[in-house]
Structure formats: C-alpha cells, structure tokens
Design a protein around this nucleic acid. Structure first.
Length: 665
DNA sequence: TTAGGGTTAG
C-alpha cells in the first residue's frame, strides 16, 4: 500500500472488483464480521447483511448464530420471524441457535411456536434439533415436555442426556437427575465431565455425599482434576454436604481459581453460617486480585446481614455501584435483606424501588423487613401493591404478612390473610403460620381465643406454638392458660429454661412471688441450666454484669423495673413479645432464643438504672434484636438518655428516639 | 449448529 494507511473496514476492494456480488464471498465476509471478529457489537455485520438483496437461509443462520453468541437473543428471534415472513426456508442449522435464544429469554411461548415449525418442516427426527429442543423446554420450566422429547428419541447421544441432566438440575428436580444418572449407568451409556458437573450439583443439593464421593474418586482416577468446572462443582458439592474442610482442601489445591470457584467457596461458608470465615475469604479473594461479581456479592451480603456488619455491607453496596454491577433480582434481594436486618429499612426500600425486575423473593424480603422493623402498616401496603402487580405470594410471604399483623394488633386482618392462603392461593398453612396466628391473638390479649385456635389445629401443635401462647400469658398475666401451656410442654418433654422463666414471670405478674421463686427453684432442681441471660454494662472501663435470673438483684426488683419499661414501650405504641427474639435467633440456637427475652428484661433494667453514658453490651453472640432496638429508641426518647447498645459486631447509638450504628471490627 | 460450575426471602 503506497500511502502506508490501513484500509477502512469496509468492502471497498470488493466493490472495485465487483466481487461483492458473488454470494460465496459475501457469505464468507458476513461470517467473519458476525462471528470471527472480536467486536462486541454487530454493527459491521448488520451493514453487510443489509446490503444483501435477498439473504438466503445461510446468511440468516450466520446472523442468528452471531446474535445468540453475542448475547442478543431477542434480535436472533426477530430475524427468525423475518425468515418466516419473507418465506426464507429453514434448514437444520436454523433451529439450534434460535432455540438457544429462546432458552436464554425463558421464552416458552416462542419455543413452542418454533417447535411447531420444526414439525411442519420435517426436522422432528434431526438429533441436534431435538437436543436443543430438550434444552429449551427444560430451561423454560417445561421439564415434562423435555422428558417426552427425550423419551421419544430413537437414539440419544451425550448431548441429549446432558441437556436432560442440566434441565432437571436447573428446575430443582435433583432426585430425577440422580435417578437418570443411575439409569444411564445401568444402560451402559458413556457419560462425560459435563454429565458429572450436573450430577454433582444434584448430589450436593440432596446432600448425597455417597454419590458425591463416588464422582470425586472417579475424577481423581481418570485425571479429570484439571477441569476447573468439575473441580468447582466438587468444591460446591462438599460444601453443600457440610464437608467444608474437604471443600477448602480441594479449593486450596486448585491451580487456577476463577471467580466462580471463589464464589462457590464463599457461599459454602455463608450457607454453613460460618460468616466470619466467608468474609475472611472474601478479603483473601481481593488480595489475590480476583474481581468479585454479582453472585459473589450475594453471599457476602448475606453474611453481612447475619453478622449485622452494617459498614462492610455498605462498602459492598458502594462497590456494586462503582463497578456498575447489574442489580439482578438475587443481588437486589440480598441487599434488601441486608439493610432490613441491620435496621436500615429506608435503604432497603430504596434498593427495592431501584430494582429493574423483582420477584416473589424480593417482595417477601421487603415485607418481612418492614414487619420486623416495626412498619407493619407499610408492610401490608406493599403486600397489596404486590397483589396489584399480579405477583403470586407464597408460604414465606404470608409469614411476613402475618407477623406484620401481629405487631400491629390487626386481628381481623390476620384472620383474613390466614384464610386467604388456602382459599385464594392454594397454600396450606404450616406450623409457622399457625404460630403466627397464635401470636396475633396472644398479643391482642385474646388468650382464650388463642388457646381455642390451638385446640382446633389440624395437626399436633409443637413446642413453639405452646411457647408462643405461654409468652402471651406472661404478657397478659393469664395464670390458668399459662399453666396449661406448661403442662403441654412438659408432656412433650420439651421444657426449656426459658419456659420456666416465663411461668415464673406470669406468677410474678400477679404478685405470686412464692410461686415465682418455686418455679425457678424447680428448674434448678431438675438440673435445667439457663443460658445466662445477662447484660454487661461497660462504664469507664469497668464492666458491670446484670443477671436477670440470679439473685444479684431480688427477683421482685428486676421484675418491677422491667415491667415499668415495658409499660413505657407500650405507651409509645410498640408491643414487645418474645416471638421476635425467636425469629431473630439462629435456627440451631433455640436456647439462646428463649433466653434473649430475659436478657431484654435485664437490658431494660440496666437502661433504667445505669448512669448516663453507659454502654450496654449484649451478652453471647446475639444481635441487637428488633425489640431491643425499639426499646432503646423509645427509652432514649422517654427518659431523655443517650444509650449505646453493643453486640458482637456493632455499636448502636440511640439519641432522642433515633439510632445510628457503627461496625467495630 | 446442540450439553457443564457459584447466588436471594422464613
């Protein structure tokens, strides 16, 4: 070239020689522009395509394939429609990519229309077409149709089997995936690494460690440990089977760890509720210079929510914004849940409103968050809005809705929602929903009604139900039904230390101090140890301990001080109840959940008695729960006191009825 | 031209 300049990326030389009219040349050029050129857009390819007078099937196929590959599935389908309108004949290469685009878009309607075209054009026996058809149906939630196509195939290759496995796994039919794998082996069909990845996901979700170990052994024996996808699936399987040490060891041995491998390991710790370790690993990931993505952040935020590390979570949110990460439904929901659990309900609402798409999880997280942060009316408003948007609620949504009703004494509404579950939505109420109803009635002082409600339950009430009733009896001083609840708990052999404390407090509430002491002594005699419900008050370096259940202060004095504070809280419009403590606690820490109530009493006592400027430290590893939070807010206003509550991770500063929080690690 | 790993609400 004389002028040393590169030619413009156009077809000028071709035009000069008029070779651009040669269809073979045009098609090669189109393929290069659409598929081989590493450009993220399709502008150049489109300009060539538009110059072709009557594009044939091959030209369309190239464009459809390129749009599918470059993540423009919508455009691929538009071109397919154009082919139909322009009567361009489909061939065997048209369908696989078009169906893949349908899968990406979860377009089952479009997929079915394309299926009709496949039958019409006589491609119903083409193996590759059928394989992608299975994949499309399985990905669009039509797993039964996918299976019908699979079963109807005269010959199934590895693609057909793998499409079926991944379909089962993506739809959550893990047992079916495992069953099919055993069938495959019984038939002597060869599987490959891709098969194993899907089956590992299934065995992890089912906690089927036996199958998982078998695959791990197979992987080692056949030298497959070089496959990053397969090893990541193994790490994930071990983590989901509760074998975190094995998962970590395998992760450590990996030569190359990508963002998915790190995310799998972080989520492993997160799901095992080993949140501190998950966050440590997240720091390590950054030191290793690996960039987290949306999926990593979901696990990280979930840990921040559990630990109550507001500052860390806020940093994660800033990072998400700075890196312009996509606010996916999952990520948005994790953010809502994080902010709500840290008491920042306005930020949770803001995130919800920013989300481009929402599902039942996001709505439920917000409703639950609002209900737990004392905004029951708003929670119900969002439920109404959700219904107006035609989002179908599920069983979890109703736990949020019913708990909003209980915080606000909405008995009639509670009944209506409870009845609507099965009538309108075909959801049979579970133990938890009955528990919510008992709580609603109990908080509203309808103790007899709550008791009758339990009696009419269609299945045996569990200890939580009786404990909820017992807590209501304590709040509303009902000795008779309280004793009945205890009788039931004794018969179920599920009496906890907290139940004795509740019964003792019921006696105390009606001035039966001897019975109150007798109940506590009974607990000691029966060797039932109470998790110390103590609060520590840190004042000028000195630590003062408050033990509610011991005789550090006479029972009567502790009780009356707590009662006085509860009156103040009620006067300010909030109804405290032990059910919140139970909701707040870790699932495996029931003992702590129950003792939390006594702790709140101790805090109440401490708040009133301690001098200004004191820091109340929450004992054990519990978070400052909603009740404590609200109590402190109200006390700071009513008693005009500055209060600092401190739990494992945060300082909560209360002043004039509002709160600000700081992480301290 | 078709198949694969990590994520959310109780």
């Amino acid at each position: 070239m004389q002028n040393n300049q590169r030619p413009e990326p156009s077809s000028r030389p071709l035009l000069k020689t008029r070779r651009h009219l040669d269809p073979t040349v045009i098609e090669n050029l189109l393929e290069s522009a659409a598929i081989l050129l590493p450009t993220p857009t399709m502008d150049y390819a489109l300009s060539i395509f538009d110059k072709i007078d009557d594009p044939d099937s091959s030209a369309y196929n190239v464009m459809i394939r390129a749009f599918t590959m470059k993540q423009f599935p919508q455009k691929a389908l538009i071109l397919f429609k154009q082919m139909l309108e322009n009567a361009v004949p489909f061939d065997e290469f048209t369908f696989p990519c078009t169906l893949k685009s349908c899968s990406r878009l979860r377009g089952r309607k479009e997929g079915k229309q394309i299926h009709a075209q496949i039958v019409k054009c006589g491609f119903w026996s083409n193996g590759i077409v059928l394989n992608t058809l299975i994949h499309m149906y399985a990905n669009c939630g039509e797993i039964e149709i996918a299976r019908k196509v699979f079963d109807g195939m005269p010959e199934r290759d590895i693609f057909a089997w793998n499409s079926m496995f991944s379909g089962y796994v993506k739809s959550g039919y893990y047992e079916d995936a495992v069953r099919l794998f055993y069938e495959m082996r019984a038939l002597g069909v060869r599987f490959n690494e891709i098969t194993l990845v899907s089956v590992l996901t299934a065995s992890g979700r089912l906690a089927d460690i036996e199958l998982g170990e078998w695959i791990a052994e197979y992987t080692r024996a056949n030298g497959l440990v070089v496959n990053v996808n397969l090893v990541t699936a193994l790490v994930d399987m071990y983590a989901k089977c509760g074998e975190l040490d094995k998962a970590q060891r395998l992760f450590d041995q990996m030569d190359r760890r990508d963002v998915v491998a790190w995310s799998a390991m972080i989520s492993g710790y997160s799901q095992a509720r080993r949140c501190k370790e998950a966050l440590d690993l997240f720091s390590e990931m950054q030191i290793a210079n690996l960039h987290p993505n949306e999926v990593t952040m979901v696990s990280v935020l979930s840990c921040c929510a559990v630990l109550g590390t507001l500052e860390t979570g806020k940093w994660v949110h800033l990072y998400i914004k700075k890196k312009r990460m996509k606010l996916t439904v999952t990520l948005g929901t994790a953010l809502i849940d994080f902010y709500a659990k840290c008491g920042q309900i306005d930020s949770a609402t803001e995130v919800f409103q920013m989300m481009p798409s929402k599902n039942v999880y996001s709505w439920t997280a917000l409703i639950q968050g609002l209900a737990n942060n004392g905004q029951g009316k708003k929670a119900l408003k969002f439920y109404q809005l959700m219904r107006e948007r035609n989002i179908e609620p599920n069983d979890v949504t109703f736990i949020g809705v019913l708990s909003a009703c209980s915080h606000f004494g909405l008995v009639d509404e509670g009944h209506e929602f409870f009845n609507s579950m099965s009538k309108e939505f075909g959801i049979e109420p579970r133990m938890e929903h009955y528990g919510c109803m008992v709580d609603i009635l109990g908080r509203a002082a309808l103790i007899k009604e709550a008791y009758q409600f339990i009696k009419k339950m269609p299945f045996q009430p569990n200890a939580v139900i009786w404990r909820t009733l017992l807590a209501s009896c304590r709040a509303h001083k009902n000795v008779e039904i309280g004793e009945e609840a205890v009788k039931q708990l004794v018969s179920l052999e599920l009496m906890h230390s907290g139940d004795y404390i509740l019964l003792s407090n019921i006696y105390a509430s009606v001035g039966r101090w001897e019975d109150a002491m007798r109940t506590r002594n009974q607990m000691k005699e029966r060797g039932i140890k109470k998790t110390p419900g103590c609060s520590l008050i840190e004042l000028e370096g000195e630590i003062y301990e408050f033990l509610a259940e011991e005789n550090a202060y006479p029972l009567k004095e502790v009780y009356c001080a707590a009662e006085d504070m509860i009156k103040q809280i009620k006067a300010a419009g909030y109804v405290p109840n032990t059910a919140d403590a139970r909701i707040d606690a870790e699932e495996d820490d029931k003992e702590a959940a129950v003792s939390h109530h006594s702790e709140k009493l101790a805090i109440a006592f401490g708040l009133i008695r301690t001098p200004p400027g004191a820091t109340i430290r929450i004992s054990k590893n519990l978070r400052v729960c909603t009740d404590c939070h609200n109590a402190a807010k109200i006390i700071s206003k009513v008693y005009n006191r500055e209060i600092v509550l401190r739990d494992r991770n945060r300082f909560h500063h209360f002043k004039e009825g509002s709160c600000s929080c700081n992480d301290y690690w």
